[in-house]
């Protein structure tokens, strides 16, 4: 399935998930129902398999990198907090968004990579403080920066995912 085909669906799914800051009883009810619906969709055969696989990969990555020097070059261990932030990030990805490849960096950050080719790649790493550091190569242009992660995918990163993966 191509990203271009699913993008409208992802926008819809995003709209369902923005209610996490809801405060009134009605909006909390809507938020709860929306999240239940989204959970059901993600656990369905069509949408769920890839998501489960990515969750499993993230757990495996965390387990492999939670001891110091996991890379043989003196790496920092990946902290539990980093794993939790990464899990939340993956959960917050809109339905139909391409799943990232997962990895870790020597400073103990977990990485998510959207990859089409070596010159068309987005790498985002998440820190134990919940900061998203990203860098992207898109043909001849490049972009990099830092965005805070508050439970929703920052627009700058969503746009880069779209640009990197667009056919």
């Amino acid at each position: 399935m191509s990203f271009a085909m699913t993008f409208p669906a992802t926008r819809y799914a995003s709209a369902l998930t923005v209610s996490s800051r809801a405060s009134s009883e009605t909006s909390r009810f809507i938020s709860q129902k929306s999240e239940e619906g989204l959970r059901l969709l993600k656990s369905s055969l069509t949408f769920g398999c890839l998501g489960k696989k990515t969750d499993d990969e993230l757990w495996l990555q965390f387990m492999e990198c939670r001891e110091a020097n996991w890379d043989g070059h003196g790496a920092e261990p990946v902290a539990e907090e980093t794993y939790q932030f990464a899990a939340q990030f993956l959960k917050a990805l809109p339905l139909g968004a391409p799943n990232p490849g997962l990895g870790a960096e020597a400073d103990g950050h977990l990485t998510m990579e959207w990859y089409r080719s070596p010159h068309r790649t987005l790498s985002a790493s998440i820190s134990p403080e919940g900061e998203l550091h990203y860098a992207a190569l898109i043909g001849g242009s490049k972009a990099y920066g830092t965005e805070p992660f508050f439970g929703e995918i920052p627009e700058a990163i969503m746009n880069l995912i779209h640009r990197v993966m667009a056919r």
Partner: peptide
């Protein structure tokens, strides 16, 4: 800065 390191690392990797 980490983002600048990542940008260079990505280009070296490529």
């Amino acid at each position: 800065e980490k983002p600048a390191q990542k940008m260079i690392a990505l280009q070296i990797a490529s």
